[in-house]
Simulated scan of single mutants.
Amino acid sequence: MNVAAGVRQQLHADAIRLPGMRPLPGAFMTIEQAMVLPRDRSEPAARFIETSITEQRCSGMVADALERHGIEGAMVADA
Rank of each mutant, 00 (worst) to 15 (best):
A77D: 07
M1P: 09
H12P: 01
T51V: 00
H69Y: 09
V3A: 15
P38S: 05
L24G: 06
G6I: 01
A77R: 12
I71N: 12
E43V: 13
D14P: 01
A46S: 09
V62E: 01
V36W: 15
R22C: 10
G26S: 04
V36N: 14
L11K: 06
R8L: 02
P38Y: 02
E43T: 04
A4I: 06
V3Q: 08
V62K: 01
R39F: 14
N2G: 12
V3Y: 04
G60C: 04
E55L: 03
P23Q: 15
S52G: 11
E55R: 11
E67N: 08
R39K: 07
A77E: 11
S52N: 08
A79F: 06
M35V: 13
S42I: 01
A63N: 02
Q10V: 11
Q56D: 02
G20Q: 13
M61G: 03
G73M: 01
A46P: 00
L37D: 00
M35Q: 01
L66N: 10
L37Q: 08
G6A: 10
G60A: 07
H69D: 13
L24K: 05
G73H: 06
T30W: 07
A13D: 10
L66R: 00
E67H: 03
D40V: 07
Q10R: 06
R41H: 11
R22Y: 09
A77C: 07
E32C: 09
E32F: 07
I16N: 10
V62R: 00
V36Q: 15
A45V: 02
Q56R: 08
R39G: 15
L37F: 14
F28H: 14
C58R: 13
G73K: 08
P38C: 02
P44C: 11
G6E: 05
I16G: 15
R47S: 06
I71P: 07
M21G: 02
E43K: 12
N2D: 13
L37P: 00
E43A: 15
Q33W: 12
D64S: 08
A15E: 05
R39P: 06
A34P: 03
Q56Y: 05
C58G: 03
I53D: 03
V36I: 04
